[in-house]
Amino acid sequence: MDTSGELSPAVRSILSAAEERDGGETRCTVDARSLPDALDAAADGGRAPVIAELKPTSPTTDGERTDDPVELAEEMVAGGAAALSVLTEPEHFGGSTETLRRVREAVSVPVLRKDFLLREAQLDAVASDVVLLIARFVDDLDGLLAAARERGFQVLVEVHTPGEARTALDAGADIIGVNNRDLAELSVDLSTFESVVESVPELRDGSVTLIAESGIETREDVTRMRSAGADGLLVGSAIMDGDVRENTERLTDV
């Protein structure tokens, strides 16, 4: 885990909790729904390929959503979401593995498990179609990526810098998310995605499904990220803040 640079206190607290969190009691075996196929189908159908994120709260938002997460998920899908992301981190985001399980049973689109996974046993806490591995915080990216794939998971490897993107590519990642949020200060800059893609042209050679994460709030942001090469867009707060169906429709109807 690379914590050599400055990290916000919130991120340090999240990582500390993640280090203590147990995994599942039995090994997961997953028949995953394809995230790349779902994103391509949305784009082919004239919709922005949005992964809508269910997060009751977070260190960067005020308040908490207490609606039934299954109902929210169904509204997001009805609004045009190509896939869903469900927070399972409990202490800082109000998520749970049970929420993910219920949501995945209720929808037909791919579901990403959004969490801070640090070791293999944590993969077995719940079945999902996709799991998130954050390149900066995983000690053995190659090993954890392989362990996830052995279980049937697809893997979204999250990066924030060109160096992390090259590490992800070297590990064999085929779904890579560029997070526009700087975890040192929790600040957001959409140009992060553009600069990483420009610095690592292999990200656009057709071998990688490329996801833009964080800070996408408007249709103009969607267009900007798509123009920069994003195959999909992970959107949380801009959908969760208000009517989730209307917000999803607003961002996918381009």
Score class of each variant (00 low, 15 high):
112 L>F: 11
109 V>M: 13
211 I>D: 10
101 R>F: 14
229 G>H: 06
252 T>Q: 09
107 V>M: 14
37 D>Y: 00
88 T>A: 02
105 E>S: 15
212 A>E: 07
33 R>K: 01
139 D>S: 15
86 V>Y: 06
146 A>P: 00
15 L>Y: 00
147 A>S: 15
85 S>E: 04
88 T>S: 12
159 V>M: 06
17 A>T: 12
216 I>N: 06
210 L>A: 07
101 R>N: 15
80 G>D: 10
31 D>W: 05
185 E>R: 15
239 I>R: 06
175 I>D: 06
125 A>P: 06
94 G>F: 07
197 V>W: 05
112 L>H: 12
87 L>C: 08
98 E>W: 03
29 T>N: 12
77 V>D: 11
227 S>T: 13
138 V>L: 02
1 M>R: 07
204 R>H: 01
170 D>H: 05
227 S>I: 05
227 S>D: 15
45 G>P: 08
106 A>T: 14
3 T>F: 03
186 L>Y: 08
16 S>F: 14
94 G>H: 07
177 G>Q: 06
148 A>Y: 08
189 D>A: 10
231 D>L: 10
200 V>L: 02
183 L>D: 03
133 L>V: 08
8 S>C: 05
107 V>P: 12
59 P>Q: 01
80 G>P: 03
83 A>H: 11
236 G>D: 06
224 R>H: 13
240 M>D: 03
245 R>W: 11
76 M>Q: 15
205 D>V: 01
216 I>P: 04
167 T>M: 07
252 T>P: 04
73 A>H: 03
189 D>W: 04
131 V>Q: 12
89 E>I: 13
224 R>D: 14
160 H>Q: 15
208 V>P: 02
181 R>L: 00
174 D>S: 14
133 L>A: 09
26 T>H: 10
179 N>D: 07
106 A>H: 11
10 A>L: 08
196 V>Y: 07
49 P>E: 11
186 L>K: 02
237 S>I: 08
124 D>H: 06
26 T>L: 14
57 T>E: 02
35 L>D: 03
65 R>K: 09
80 G>A: 14
138 V>C: 07
244 V>D: 11
58 S>Q: 03
142 D>V: 14
157 V>I: 08
75 E>K: 15
45 G>C: 06
161 T>E: 01
10 A>T: 00
41 A>M: 09
197 V>F: 05
206 G>C: 03
79 G>F: 12
25 E>S: 13
153 F>N: 05
69 P>A: 04
205 D>N: 05
56 P>N: 02
75 E>M: 14
173 A>R: 00
9 P>G: 04
